[in-house]
Amino acid sequence: MSMKTEALQAAHGAEEQPLHHQFEELPQQNESYVVGMWVFLVTEIMFFGGMFLAYVLYRWRYSEAWFEAHTKLDIPLGTTNTVVLLTSSLTMALAVHFAQLRNKRLQLAMLGATIGLACVFLVIKAFEWSAKFQHGLVPGPNFTWEGLVPAPQAQLFYSLYFGMTGLHALHVIIGIVVIGVLALLTALDHPLVKNDFIPTELVGLYWHFVDIVGIFLFPLFYLIPK
């Protein structure tokens, strides 16, 4: 515990992972960051949780309307998008893997692939959304609904659809920015990330969380059984 930063670095040379001033040793530092990220993800779960709760309530109340409304969603596009997201999760996990191995070239390649897949996800999402705009399925004064079920209930479905997938897409956009910054810093050998795989691991945790949200959104919106 009393080992000082300098002593540690001297013992292991410049290759050693940097120790930040508030910590005493590396395992403590690494676990602190990981636990901190997980606590943040707990807040994210509760954040999405409020919306999931509203979703469950209204789906239970208006189950028929929910089924009718969901038939207007594009299942192939939704499936494709979820697979894209899963794949990006894999590339992100591999980016962390190569960060741990200090293979900067492959790490950057995997981060790039993740960003690329995330962009593909957003493009597909944009296609889906614009179709909804064209069909007047955007909640609000211009919402048009021709169907057996009441318009307000269908509108509620689309409110939650846009709210939840929108919030998810926002997280994807934030993820792209964060991964981009991480890749840039890695490429520049910035001291914040040099010889330290923890930043990549933390960004990875965030990205996998976004993936998990996607995993739940997909069956809840696209695959509603009769």
Binding site: V39, T43, I45, M46, F47, F48, G49, G50, P139, G140
Partner: peptide, 22 residues
């Protein structure tokens, strides 16, 4: 950590309702 995000999303929903009428 467990509570604040819930009120955050709730207030966000109020804003959505207010601004976009959804």
């Amino acid at each position: 950590v467990l509570g604040t995000p819930v009120v955050a999303i709730t207030l966000l929903l109020v804003v959505m309702e207010r601004v976009f009428h959804i």
